[in-house]
Each structure stands twice: as structure tokens, then as C-alpha cells.
């Protein structure tokens, strides 16, 4: 009898004492990851000679374009909620310079433009520039496939010295704020 009670106890132990606290796996539906991803974007360093054409005539503007592939990726296209564009620059030229940044769609039409960035002549330590783009209020930015950078020189009426070694330097990055369910 003593043995049978022990056996009964062992077998019953797990049947009657085991339990599991109620769990709610559906909470995962509310899980949102919010990574913040930063990437270098564009940079350049130009000297006066790069503003002169083959005829030795100074051009007061230069531009260049690169692909912007972030929103080709469906994950980013769906989940980026904000972009922050950061830039730092210095202007050693003897005249003001202005940078114009435009996001272009596949037809090269500007769909979002930053306020012009003006850097005064000789300013080698201007405050950094920051532009916040909230996707919800600027959904057209999702169509951006290219970024165009245009550099304008102030027209002072005199040409720069093409042999001058002064530089205009520009650095930039983009930070993506992502909010994604799992």
C-alpha cells in the first residue's frame, strides 16, 4: 500500500500540480522596432579651377546628380517615418557660395527641395545644417530616386583666380528613422 501511494503520488504530481501562467502571444502584434540608421551621403571638395570651363571662363554654378536608392527597397519605403539630412561645410573662397539640394523623381523632376544653404565667404566654421523630413507630411519624397546638388557662387563681377588653392568643402549624411512591426 505504501508503494502504491508513492506511485500514485509521482504520477499525479505532474498531472495535478503542473500549470502554466496564461500567456498572450498576440502582444507581438504590437511590437515595433525603431532602428535609427545613419549613412554618409555625399561629399565634395572643390577649388576655383573647377568652376572654369575649357575656355577659361568662370561658371558660377556646378551641379551633380547621384542615385538615391533608399526607397527602392520596399522595407524602407514602407517603414521610414522620418529622414534627417545633416551637412557640414566650409567656404575658403572670396565670395559667398550657395548649395541647393533637390530630390528628384525618375523623370528628374524636383519633388522636394531644401532651403538654400548659404555659406559666406571665408567662413570655415559655419553651424552645421540640418533638415528634417517627416514622411507623413511629405509623402512625395518616397518617389525620390536621385539627389541633385548644385553649387552657386556669388557673382561679384570679378573672376576668381583659377590657381587659388582655397577650397569649398561639403560633407553630408542622412539618418533614417524606421518604425517597423515584426
Amino acid at each position: 500500500m505504501r508503494f502504491s501511494k508513492l506511485i500514485y503520488f509521482i504520477l499525479s504530481f505532474f498531472v495535478f500540480t503542473s500549470c502554466a501562467e496564461s500567456l498572450d502571444f498576440n502582444q507581438l502584434d504590437d511590437y515595433v522596432v525603431k532602428p535609427v540608421l545613419t549613412s554618409s551621403l555625399t561629399y565634395f571638395k572643390v577649388s576655383p579651377i573647377q568652376f572654369f570651363d575649357e575656355n577659361g571662363v568662370q561658371q558660377n554654378s556646378r551641379e551633380d546628380i547621384t542615385d538615391f536608392i533608399v526607397f527602392e527597397n520596399s522595407f524602407f519605403r514602407k517603414n521610414v517615418v522620418k529622414m534627417v539630412f545633416n551637412a557640414e561645410f566650409k567656404n575658403e573662397f572670396d565670395r559667398d557660395a550657395m548649395i541647393q539640394v533637390d530630390f528628384l523623381d525618375a523623370n528628374n523632376i524636383a519633388i522636394y527641395s531644401f532651403a538654400p544653404i548659404i555659406v559666406e565667404s571665408g567662413d570655415v566654421d559655419p553651424p552645421p545644417y540640418e533638415e528634417d523630413i517627416v514622411i507623413a507630411t511629405n509623402p512625395n519624397i518616397l518617389s525620390a530616386t536621385k539627389v541633385r546638388f548644385r553649387a552657386f557662387l556669388e557673382d561679384t563681377g570679378t573672376q576668381m583666380n583659377p590657381l587659388d588653392t582655397s577650397e569649398f568643402e561639403f560633407k553630408s549624411s542622412v539618418t533614417l528613422f524606421v518604425e517597423s512591426d515584426f
Partner: peptide
């Protein structure tokens, strides 16, 4: 190593990202 796109502002249409 990736530092971003280095603009050259040349006359050629450089496919930087490519």
C-alpha cells in the same frame, strides 16, 4: 569601406551609385 558619394562636378555624367 563606404564614405558616401564623392561628387566630382565633371562634365561627364558619372554613375556614382553604380
Amino acid at each position: 569601406v563606404f564614405e558616401g558619394v564623392n561628387f566630382l562636378f565633371g562634365d561627364d555624367n558619372v554613375n556614382y551609385w553604380g
